[in-house]
């Protein structure tokens, strides 16, 4: 296969990238300097060679333990469970969670053949035995994410001295009540709190 076609094919295998975008990216690279293209290639090689899954939390990082597990200033008695490593970035951007993470590597989905064994759940249970006091379940509010949360709650709640909490759902900050949709408002009502 000619080099150009090979690159187009490789690009078009990426999520969200169709044949046309793949072509545009390829020709963009061909027009830019070879140094830039080599830098991109180098970054790809580094990601492939150096990034590993953290042996404690399954986060993706070039250190093991990852930068969160290895950071002694972080509160080790709190563990936040997320579906994917990319969710950690979103939570970190908020800047106010200082505990540890655990990446499940997906969510329960029998239709896709994903049961508890396919997720990093036994690793989570093993971690919970040393000094964890609170498990914060931050799976997505989709049906699958909720079912995963329920499952975790069921297997973790018999353990002693561990609180299981779930992220709240409701009105977005800075949003006007009148623009919120009915479902969100209903959720916010159900989750209202004492002042």
């Amino acid at each position: 296969m000619p080099a150009i076609d090979e690159l187009i094919t490789e690009f078009s295998r990426l999520p969200g990238i169709g044949r046309k975008t793949a072509q545009r990216l390829t020709y963009h690279l061909l027009k830019s300097s070879p140094t830039e293209t080599r830098r991109l290639a180098g970054a790809l090689v580094r990601v492939a060679d150096e990034v590993k899954s953290c042996s404690r939390c399954a986060n993706l990082s070039d250190q093991d333990p990852c930068e969160y597990c290895g950071d002694e200033r972080r509160a080790s008695e709190q563990v936040c469970v997320v579906e994917e490593a990319s969710d950690i970035a979103a939570i970190e951007n908020s800047g106010n969670y200082r505990g540890l993470y655990h990446v499940l590597g997906g969510r329960l989905s029998p239709l896709d053949g994903i049961g508890p064994e396919q997720l990093n759940i036994s690793e989570l249970l093993a971690r919970l035995r040393d000094g964890v006091r609170e498990l914060i379940v931050a799976t997505n509010p989709s049906v699958e994410g909720e079912a995963t949360a329920t499952y975790l709650h069921r297997i973790v709640s018999p353990l002693e001295n561990i609180r299981v909490t779930r992220l709240a759902r409701g009105l977005p900050v800075g949003g006007d009540l009148e623009y919120a949709d009915g479902v969100t408002i209903a959720e916010a009502f159900a989750g209202r709190r004492e002042m």
């Binding site: 329960l108 508890p116 909720e146 079912a147 329920t150 499952y151 069921r154 297997i155």
Partner: peptide, 10 residues
């Protein structure tokens, strides 16, 4: 039973 339960709940 434990694996079915979350879906029953949903």
């Amino acid at each position: 039973a434990g694996e079915l339960q979350p879906w029953t709940d949903e």
